[in-house]
Each structure stands twice: as structure tokens, then as C-alpha cells.
């Protein structure tokens, strides 16, 4: 347990049983950082940077996070403008609600819906697809526009406020694949599985987060 000033540089990965936690931790370690894997709300709130991993269903994710009191923690992190990187279903749960399993209420941090990908293409959307950068932001530093990232999902976020949509990807529909709102970064794709561009995105996030304090 680290206390006081030490926390200024702590990078936490929220541990709520998500399948890709280890891959995310491996990517952060590869960049030379030592992440703290934690399910303790205090530790998460005290961290300089937080990563919310995610794979699987939105309802399960929210219920696992709720059991740990983490949905409130996530809301607080965003309210306090703490650097937070949310991945895949971690992005989806931030919207108002999802069509997954009928209709399920989400955290309502980003007004908008999570919708099922349209028919006509293979679902899940699995593989490498391009992210079109809609904004100029240091998270994209060193990453070319329309670089490929690895996706695996059947639902996508549709924020009401287009100004938070930082990246889009085309798969039967032009969908939001990245959200940036203050210090919240959220990606539908998996940077930890997206080769060198993915590692670079995490590096950019951590540089932003750790230098900003």
C-alpha cells in the first residue's frame, strides 16, 4: 500500500474480474511502468492515472463494478477530471444505456445510447480496422490518421454530443470508436492488442496523466 506523495505517480488498473486485465497490465509494464492492479476504491481514487479494462457484456460489467462500489468511483474520477482510460465495454458502460439484452441502464456519464451493430456484416466485429481521428489531441501523437486498431465487439456507443467523439470507424455504419472528454479517454478497440500503435496510445495517455500533476 502506497500513501501520500507516492500516489502521485500511481497507475491503477481496476480489477473487477475482466478477462483482459493481464494483457492491459503487460502492455503498461512493457512501457516501463509498474501498474497497481486493485479493486480498492480508495486506491483507485488516489491514483494519478486509472485504466478500466473491459471485455464481455455491459450488464455483467456494471454488476461486477457495483459489487466493488466502483461505479461511484468511476463517476467521481470523471467529475474530478482524473485521467481515466476506459476500454471496449468500459467505454460502453459510460453511456446512458445499452440495447444489449433489451435495454440496460448504464452510468450516464456520456449522454447517448449503445446500439447493436447493423446486420449485413459479420458480428462480432472482430479484427483490425481504421480509426479516423476527428480531433487533434496528444493521445494521437505518433499515431497516423486511419491507423489500424484491434476491435472485438457487437455493440457500439453513440454519444449525443458529437464533440466528444474523437475517433470514428466504419463497419456497416460510421461508429464512434473513441471518446475524449476532458481527461477521460475511452476506446472501443483494444490498445493492448493493437501492436505498436496501441502501445503508443497508452504511452501518450500516461505521459499526459503523469506530467499533468
Amino acid at each position: 500500500m502506497r500513501k501520500g506523495n507516492d500516489m502521485a505517480k500511481v497507475i491503477s488498473i481496476i480489477d473487477y474480474g475482466a478477462g483482459n486485465l493481464r494483457s492491459v497490465a503487460n502492455a503498461i509494464k512493457k512501457l516501463g511502468y509498474q501498474p497497481m492492479i486493485t479493486s480498492d476504491s480508495r486506491e483507485v481514487l488516489d491514483s494519478a492515472a486509472v485504466i478500466l479494462p473491459g471485455v464481455g457484456a455491459a450488464a455483467d460489467t456494471i454488476s461486477s463494478l457495483n459489487k466493488l462500489g466502483m461505479t461511484d468511483v468511476i463517476r467521481q474520477l470523471i467529475q474530478r477530471q482524473r485521467p481515466l482510460f476506459a476500454i471496449c465495454v468500459g467505454l460502453q458502460i459510460l453511456l446512458s444505456g445499452t440495447e444489449e439484452g433489451g435495454w440496460y441502464e448504464c452510468l450516464k456519464v456520456i449522454p447517448g445510447k449503445v446500439k447493436k451493430l447493423p446486420p449485413g456484416f459479420k458480428i462480432p466485429h472482430i479484427g483490425w480496422n481504421q480509426v479516423k481521428q476527428r480531433v487533434s489531441h496528444s493521445i494521437f501523437e505518433g499515431i497516423p490518421d486511419e491507423a489500424n486498431f484491434y476491435f472485438v465487439h457487437s455493440f457500439y456507443a453513440e454519444p449525443e454530443d458529437m464533440s466528444v467523439v474523437a475517433g470514428t470507424t466504419s463497419y456497416g455504419v460510421s461508429m464512434c470508436s473513441m471518446v475524449i472528454k476532458d481527461n477521460l479517454i475511452a476506446a472501443q478497440f483494444h490498445p493492448e492488442k493493437s501492436g505498436e500503435h496501441g502501445l503508443r496510445m497508452y504511452a501518450n495517455f500516461l505521459k499526459l496523466a503523469l506530467n499533468g500533476r
Binding site: R22, S23, N26, A27, K30, Y150, K193
Partner: peptide, 8 residues
Amino acid sequence: VSEQIFIP
């Protein structure tokens, strides 16, 4: 392997 490679 998963410590070194960052693809699925």
C-alpha cells in the same frame, strides 16, 4: 508470449 506480443 503475452508479456512480449501485443496482438490477439
